[in-house]
């Protein structure tokens, strides 16, 4: 076996089992079957997949606080099924959240957060959970669910201001988390983040911030097939949460590349 390990590819094949073996493993995993746990309860091993999903969220720090932007589309697979899904919500007094991924899982997360904020308020002692605390709580929830092989199928952005301290962070569905001056989820990581890295600075005014977000959302709208042209922006400052009605971005589709998309794309029709 030791020689097999250092041997070339055919030997590796032996170690991993034949082609048909791995096919069967895959098949078994996709068919729901029951495994008896040590607690004599049945745990169902199904792969979970999202049904209705939202696409990217973009969040930035600006001079007075945090701005989040997301569109309102809800995709059913690749069908753009819903166009009025709110994916940006306030959490308590100091935080706002934005979610991409499975919408119903986000609704469950909001139930967790509402309960968390309620029980925090019920102490009625002047203490309250800030964005950092909520972000960390979410990280724990997401990682805990992935450890149960039943992740909440979301990427979340959490922002907020408390005691003059701005906070912006993100959590993935497996619990990966980090803080930054600007964060995005999904396609935004590839399409919006580079723009933000070039153009973001600490002293953005509200207007400049919105303009920067719109630039990001417009690129996403052009290049992300799941994006729809109805976006929402949510702001939080020391004064609290600011909501704005949803609106559409001005678009320009008359680029020559759009008019004749196959030019320069060899092999396409």
């Amino acid at each position: 076996m030791a020689t097999n390990l250092v041997d070339s590819t055919p030997a590796m094949n032996n170690l991993l089992g034949s082609e048909s073996d791995s096919q069967r493993t895959l098949y078994d995993f996709c068919t729901s079957h029951y495994v008896e746990s040590i607690y004599e309860r049945t745990i169902r091993f199904d792969p979970w997949y999202p049904y209705v999903t939202g696409t990217s969220v973009v969040g930035i720090k600006y001079k007075d606080g945090i701005l989040l932007a997301a569109d309102m589309g809800g995709s059913y697979g690749s069908t753009l099924r819903y166009k009025g899904v709110e994916r940006l919500k306030p959490v308590g007094k100091h935080s706002i959240i934005g979610a991409s991924g499975e919408i119903s899982d986000f609704q469950e997360i909001m139930r967790f957060l509402d309960e968390l904020i309620l029980s925090d308020n019920m102490w009625d002692d002047g203490n309250s959970l800030g964005p950092k605390e909520v972000h960390n709580y979410l990280t724990r929830v997401m990682y805990n669910r992935r450890n149960k092989f039943n992740p909440l199928w979301n990427s979340l952005v959490l922002g907020g201001v408390k005691n003059g301290q701005k906070y912006l962070g993100t959590v993935s569905m497996i619990g990966v988390h980090y803080e930054d001056n600007h964060v995005t989820t999904g396609f935004g990581n590839h399409l919006a983040r580079p723009i933000l890295r070039d153009e973001w600075h600490e002293n953005l005014t509200f207007e400049e911030g919105v303009k920067l977000l719109e630039k990001c959302m417009r690129v996403l709208l052009y290049r992300d097939r799941s994006a729809v042209n109805k976006i929402q922006i949510l702001k939080i400052t020391e004064e609290g949460v600011g909501t704005f009605p949803p609106y559409s971005l001005k678009t320009y589709w008359n680029f020559s590349a759009f008019q004749n998309p196959t030019v320069g794309a060899e092999g396409s029709w």
Binding site: W123, D125, N127, L129, E133, N136, Y137, R140
Partner: peptide
């Protein structure tokens, strides 16, 4: 501090 990465308010612990 595991859950929230911040310190438990004293008043709450006392309650």
């Amino acid at each position: 501090s595991y859950t929230y990465e911040s310190q438990l308010p004293v008043g709450r612990l006392v309650v």
